[in-house]
Design a protein around this nucleic acid. Structure first.
Lengths: 347, 347
DNA sequence: CTGAAAGCGCTTACAG
DNA sequence: CTGAAAGCGCTTACAG
């Protein structure tokens, strides 16, 4: 392991001052040809790489961005992440990533610890993509930690705004997905519609559930508690939820799933019990992923433009860092992606 | 945005020296009760958070680890990542993540730039998970950059060893997967077996292809160039590859796919053309993901223990950092996960 | 147990 | 265009 050379040694060996080497490296001021060549020679000789740490210390910025994300393995989050990382890199930033594996039912002080770490690392800005902020009621200690973070750094949070917080909020939550799906299934003749996936206590789940119940009400349909099974967001959860629906003896012909993973798991479970989608049961998803385009059947669901959302998030953060923040809120119109998982009832 | 207080100001306001504050913070030496209380009060008052940057500079280590990864959205890589991040966090490290979106056919100096950045950031160690190292012949400039990285920092590379490199290598490559799958399909009576997915020029693809051809040879079967379609690793690639197989008029009854995503895409394409898996065509995957457990049909494939591999990678890196490196190579035995995508021919 | 001081490796007014 | 020097915010021998 070769020791790293410092600017000081470069300066000595090329007979110039540290200041000149620094200026050469940063290109802030023109350096005379003669000195430049000497410096370049010595840098090449030792393969010198300046220490960003020291630079950050004297400059007061680190050119790093912190991202706190619940689950990088979730398609929704990694598509956001990929776009964010791309833009960040283009702007010269490096990303400190904290994957919190946040789960509703597990007590994790992790997020709060990570917020603290990000302050310690003096990142230039932070993006909080979901996590405890998604709960209907985040804990006081979490809110305090988040506010403290926002007090110290530019912070953009993807989630429901907290009043009086120093953070900036972008809320992509879209309860209307359920409305679209419900209308769609209703128009196909379905009247017994189940709802699966999504954790209780999570804001978006509560919003969707409220929409679901309201729609039942408006259509003068009975609300059947047995047709609602809340779980997590993965295929295995959809699988379990579907099994659970079948165990209860409440009839249904259609299912609204929290996302494509849940839908795919449910389809698999129905299949295992001898029911076919869409012939026996129709299913639609609140959150369309690319996985749903290759499944059998393809899953009909609400498609959101995650890339644009990711770009909006990082742009907003960069603007905050530069102090040119403008609070724009644009509408992320979602659209229905029609697969093959729904059919007209009785046809 | 509140300005960050420094140790110096804490020291002044609590009537002790900076040294004492520092010692209190690090718990290196016991500080008298009296002074401790004063310090604690002032720290609480200002919500002081020490600057890791300055700390790193004087300590000579940053408690950060760099990870260079081709595609975090790939299940193989994110399961590695999740395990690595978990262990890293437990050991107090924060991760700088560079997702290179590495693609074989796109010229990207990105990886080399990232190596350079990691040196600049003086991370304590680097994990390189695939990328250009996976090519059958990585470019000279890449190898030079990688060696330079290894010269400056402890580096663990997941990939085929480069002779005389200062980096440490862990090679999980397992060409035997193809052998297992081939034997399996052969034993079910299949004789016309296609091979799809995986980029040409990528080492593991070449290895698998070589194994595939050797097995054809050993079984005295004709090698049909039309039955080999190399593409990328995603569902859309499997879809295209399957379409391409069907267009050619070379008969086949079974397909070996590079991974579950490719297999799922292929199953979808066969379905779209009226062929059913496994009734008309059997398909098996070299790399089993959890997605293959919920697809219709479930995909039979080679399961690898990604979590253990991730743990081995991070453990090896941490040992290198601590200077207690021992070059263990353990065998990652893989096993056949039996889904429903293969059946006995003609039965 | 505690303080004064030097040092980590850069940057940047200030003066020439 | 260039240099000497102070400063960024911490840590840690050294001396008490």
């Amino acid at each position: 392991m070769k020791e790293n050379i410092t600017i000081k040694q470069i300066a000595q060996e090329s007979n110039v001052s540290m200041a000149t080497v620094s200026r050469y490296l940063n290109g802030t001021v023109t350096v005379s040809d003669e000195k430049r060549q000497q410096i370049e020679a010595v840098i090449a000789k030792y393969n010198f790489t300046p220490n960003t740490n020291a630079r950050s210390l004297s400059l007061g910025r680190t050119m790093t961005l912190g991202i706190v994300i619940p689950d990088i393995s979730n398609p929704y989050f990694y598509s956001l992440f990929l776009e964010i990382q791309k833009e960040a890199t283009l702007n010269g930033y490096t990303i400190l990533l904290y994957n919190t594996s946040f789960q509703q039912n597990r007590k994790e002080p992790e997020e709060e610890e990570y917020f603290q770490k990000l302050i310690q690392y003096r990142v230039d800005g932070v993006l909080v993509l979901g996590g405890q902020i998604d709960l209907a009621s985040p804990s006081p200690s979490y809110l305090q930690a988040l506010n403290r973070l926002g007090d110290s750094l530019p912070v953009v949070v993807m989630g429901h705004p907290i009043p009086e917080s120093p953070c900036h909020f972008l809320d992509p939550e879209n309860g209307s997905g359920v409305t679209t799906l419900f209308h769609y299934l209703y128009s196909l003749g379905h009247r017994n519609i189940a709802f699966i996936g999504g954790n209780a206590g999570v804001r978006i789940t509560e919003t969707r559930l409220a929409a679901y119940k309201k729609l039942l009400d408006l259509h003068r349909l009975d609300s059947q508690p047995d047709l609602v099974v809340l779980t997590d967001y993965y295929s295995q959860d959809g699988y379990q939820a579907a099994l659970s629906l079948m165990e209860k003896s409440c009839p249904f012909t259609a299912v609204i799933a929290a996302n494509d993973n849940v839908a795919i798991g449910a389809i698999r479970a129905f299949g295992d019990k001898g029911f076919s989608v869409p012939y026996d049961i129709s299913i639609a998803s609140c959150d369309h992923f690319s996985a749903g385009e290759y499944s059998i059947p393809r899953v009909t669901g609400i498609a959101r433009d995650t890339y644009l959302l990711g770009r909006l998030l990082i742009d907003t953060l960069l603007q905050n860092i530069r102090g040119t923040s403008e609070d724009i809120s644009i509408d992320f119109s979602s659209s229905l992606w029609e697969g093959e998982s729904c059919r007209t009832l009785g046809k």
